[in-house]
Design a binder for these strands. Structure first.
Lengths: 119, 119
DNA sequence: TCCATATTTCAACGATTATTGAAATATTGA
DNA sequence: TCAATATTTCAATAATCGTTGAAATATGGA
């Protein structure tokens, strides 16, 4: 992934409504969601949503297909993981073992409890 | 991580110079780098760099400490991984096994060869 | 064909952003 | 203290961004 593509993708995600939209699509999975569902779920005006979908699509983060009157948007997961990989690329000089234990670990799916206790 | 914090962090990374700066710090590891080294490495004016460091710092993505005349900036790795986790949170409805094999995998450290061949 | 639904296009507006240049501040060593 | 180095602060400018409202387009069903 090139820097310019990463910047475009990050900029697409760096807006509260678009971030909500994208995360909704990530949670929806590969089948995606119709634009109307997203609009209803997030309380966005349809034209505003089109604007945001365009940004996400130009950034390569989502795809669209038509299904009858509906447009179905879906996250492009491989682009997302490419982006995450780009951020952590060559972490700690490519020798993560030299860093503190958890420093260069890829995203850990944390399921935080009410409080963390030191081991 | 809250949406607003994620948006702030993503916005901080969604600019080519800042993305370069942050990735340089990620690669430098926990010890960080003096501002001057970063400025020299990336060819940025010192005041411009201060502006970008401020953004990264306000987003919680970097720390600073003074060392003599130099300011040493370092990436905050745990914030970075929190951000990555936020993006993939509850991926595919929390049942990634329902998705295609690699869909919800966390960032894979790809070391691309000159060309990829389909398996 | 006509109507309702679903989404997109277009123009306009105020708000935010990145960069520049000049000047200020902090630290070190002579 | 004085000069040199390293970085920050401040003001100004052009460019980009998100939202709104009104109108257009596409599809499906009566």
């Amino acid at each position: 992934m090139e820097t310019i593509d990463a910047v475009t993708a990050l900029a697409a995600l760096a807006q509260d409504n678009r971030l909500d939209v994208f995360r909704l699509l990530v949670q929806a999975g590969p089948d995606g969601l119709p634009a109307g569902s997203v609009a209803h779920e997030l309380g966005l005006a349809p034209n505003t949503l089109t604007f945001h979908f365009d940004r996400l699509r130009q950034a390569g983060l989502v795809t669209v297909r038509r299904d009858g009157r509906s447009m179905i948007y879906a996250a492009r997961f491989e682009v997302m993981t490419d982006l995450l990989g780009f951020l952590t690329d060559n972490c700690c000089g490519g020798k993560p073992e030299l860093c503190a234990p958890t420093v260069c670990k890829p995203a850990t799916k944390t399921k935080p409890k009410t409080r963390e206790t030191a081991p």
